[in-house]
């Protein structure tokens, strides 16, 4: 059990990174990776929302959809959860913790359409995790996302000082960089398996 948790963390962050290996959350990955600071903020927001959303989705799935035999409604149910959750978080934060809201607020709307959130919630169900594994997996996946985001932001800040052909600037070079990053993360394959 304990080893299993460690494996979940390792695999979710390094070996099977949700952005670099599973292609979840690529849109914000391309969009919000221009500055290290911004990417850290986005990462924090994702950690927060992803953990909450995955837990709530898990609860709804296991305690409502399965008993009622409504598994086919999971997509609708989960997206409802996520969309509402993001808005609720936004509202609650605004009232109770304005500082945190200031830091995370601008990223929250971006998260609704971040397929990493829905993706992780769905994958989590697919892998049949229990509640503890769910929490660990969600946090680890979000940290993996943040890590990939921050690394890319560091690289892009440096590439800003480069005289690069306009054809490659922006998304093109970011994608290729992500590809090579993905290549180098392949080295972690097989170290721990689930």
């Amino acid at each position: 059990m304990e080893l299993n948790l460690a494996a979940i963390i390792f695999v979710a962050i390094l070996a099977n990174n949700i952005v670099l290996n599973q292609f979840l959350g690529v849109c914000p990955y391309l969009g919000v990776s221009k500055r290290i600071e911004t990417s850290l903020g986005m990462g924090m927001a994702v950690v927060f929302v992803m953990t909450l959303a995955t837990i709530v989705s898990w609860v709804i799935f296991n305690f409502i959809l399965i008993p009622l035999d409504l598994v086919y409604l999971r997509t609708i149910a989960f997206i409802l959860v996520i969309a509402s959750l993001v808005q609720l978080v936004e509202i609650v934060l605004k009232k109770n913790n304005p500082t945190l809201f200031k830091a995370l607020g601008i990223y929250l709307p971006l998260i609704t359409t971040n397929c990493a959130i829905l993706g992780v919630a769905l994958l989590n169900i697919q892998m049949g995790h229990n509640i503890i594994q769910t929490v660990v997996y969600a946090i680890a996946a979000a940290i993996g996302f943040t890590m990939a985001l921050v690394i890319m932001a560091g690289i892009r800040e440096r590439l800003e000082l480069v005289n690069m052909s306009g054809l490659l600037q922006g998304a093109a070079v970011t994608l290729v960089t992500a590809g090579i990053l993905s290549l180098s993360f392949m080295g972690f394959a097989g170290i721990m398996t689930l």
Binding site: L20, N21, Q22, F23, A171, A172, V173, T174, L175, V176, T177, A178, G179, I180, S182, L183, M186
Partner: peptide, 11 residues
């Protein structure tokens, strides 16, 4: 493979 997807799309 996944890296190839990124690289192919980038190019």
């Amino acid at each position: 493979s996944p890296p190839g997807a990124f690289i192919a799309l980038g190019i």
